[in-house]
């Protein structure tokens, strides 16, 4: 198989991932899009490794590490998404606007209600 096939597919995957990150509002969907980006990098790494016939198999080893990193990211990410969902009943990223640049509160005591339990 020619190298350009794998690299082209990987670029396509990466592009799909970037589009997903930018276009999707659901936090879980964004996470999936990020996985596409990471796996595009993996495909590249393995393809280049085979192409170079790398003695140290740097690309394959790197790909394994990326898989581990991706798994850890998903583990932490889903936990955070769950925490947000339990408190907000939504995982739409554009609905999370409690923290944002705002005008100062008109009266001294109005903001305190934000942090009240």
């Amino acid at each position: 198989m020619h190298l350009s096939l794998a690299v082209g597919l990987s670029a396509l995957l990466f592009g799909t991932g970037v589009y997903g990150v930018l276009a999707r509002r659901n936090a879980v969907a964004v996470l999936m899009a990020v996985e596409l980006m990471l796996n595009a990098a993996n495909l590249d790494l393995v393809a280049f490794d085979a192409w170079f016939k790398d003695n140290l198999h740097g690309g394959q080893v790197f790909a394994l590490f990326v898989v581990v990193v991706a798994a850890a990211e998903v583990g932490v990410g889903l936990a955070i998404v769950l925490a947000v969902f339990r408190l907000r009943d939504t995982v739409a990223v554009d609905a999370l606007t409690q923290l944002a640049d705002r005008d100062p509160p008109a009266r001294a005591d109005t903001v305190a209600s934000d942090s009240a339990p």
Partner: peptide
């Protein structure tokens, strides 16, 4: 809720 929101924004 604000802490989770902060964490999610940081994470993404």
């Amino acid at each position: 809720a604000r802490a989770s929101e902060a964490a999610l924004k940081f994470f993404l």
